[in-house]
């Protein structure tokens, strides 16, 4: 593997593998709670944070983290005001985030190559510092989900029943949305802001086609995401393509293959 001789590719693969674990884990809950649009909202909030970092001359990922966590809390607070229209809170925060991002970018006059790498993802842009932050964030996300697995499953399946069982649903909803925000910040360097939400959703959609339990849905979606990331990074290296685009297109190809195979098998059985 010639490409792995390069430090930047080693970093890209470490980052990619971390993404292929945390995105589907969080994505499984996001999809089953019918909050698929939240990925777009929080990624646009993180774009505003990156622009703020460029404007204030501090490490952009800190800006992304602060803005996306703030947006996550905003979505949860607004969700209570629109209990019958949960998606409305997501749309409101999405609009505010895009507006803020555009303002910050124009104020910082920062529509440059660095910003483009955040938007579309980049292999060479992943630094050692990014890897340390991504690894720390990923460990925190994985441990949190392992510890709160049964509570998060219950809330995703039946929020009212979970509340009656004594689960602190309000606190856990905020905590879960913060985990989603952290996942997006961790993934944005490689996949790109514009495509992160696909990484949360598409591998899970493929997995739901074939999985026979909640646990297997999560495990299979990690496998699909891993395949898409490893193949996507390899293709983007050899063909000089944006990694985010390659990874997301491959995820969709995997989804279509799963749907096609399932239909073919069902047809043969019937």
């Amino acid at each position: 593997m010639e490409m792995l001789q390069y430090d930047f590719m080693q970093r890209a693969f470490v980052a990619g593998i971390l993404i292929s674990i945390i995105c589907p884990i969080i994505g499984t809950f996001v999809v089953l709670r019918r909050l698929s649009m939240i990925g777009d909202t929080l990624s646009h909030a993180s774009l505003a944070g990156i622009a703020a970092g460029m404007l204030g001359n501090f490490y952009p990922l800190w800006g992304a983290m602060i803005f996306s966590v703030a947006a996550a809390i905003g979505v949860e607070k607004l969700r209570k005001n629109f209990s019958q229209y949960a998606e409305l809170s997501i749309s409101i925060v999405l609009s505010a985030s895009i507006g803020l991002a555009v303002l910050m970018i124009s104020l910082a006059d920062s529509f440059n190559a660095d910003l483009m790498s955040f938007l579309f993802g980049s292999i060479i842009a992943v630094t050692g510092r990014d890897i340390i932050i991504m690894a720390g964030t990923s460990i925190f996300i994985i441990v949190s989900v392992l510890l709160l697995y049964k509570e998060l499953l219950y809330i995703a399946f039946d929020e009212e029943g979970a509340a009656l069982a004594g689960i602190p649903t309000e606190t856990l909803n905020i905590f879960f949305t913060v985990l989603t925000a952290l996942t997006i910040v961790a993934a944005m360097r490689v996949v790109g802001i514009l495509m992160i939400s696909s990484m949360l959703v598409v591998p899970v959609a493929a997995s739901m086609q074939i999985s026979k339990s909640f646990k297997s849905t999560m495990i299979n979606s990690v496998i699909f995401a891993f395949l898409a990331v490893v193949l996507g990074l390899t293709i983007s290296y050899y063909f000089n393509l944006a990694p985010g685009g390659a990874i997301v297109v491959l995820s969709v190809v995997i989804l279509l293959l799963v749907i096609g195979t399932k239909k073919y098998i069902l047809k043969r059985i019937v």
Partner: peptide
């Protein structure tokens, strides 16, 4: 379409 088994659904209420 929620992909949980019968056992997983019942287990969820072990919280108490």
């Amino acid at each position: 379409g929620f992909p949980a088994t019968v056992e997983e659904v019942v287990k969820a209420n072990l919280y108490s």
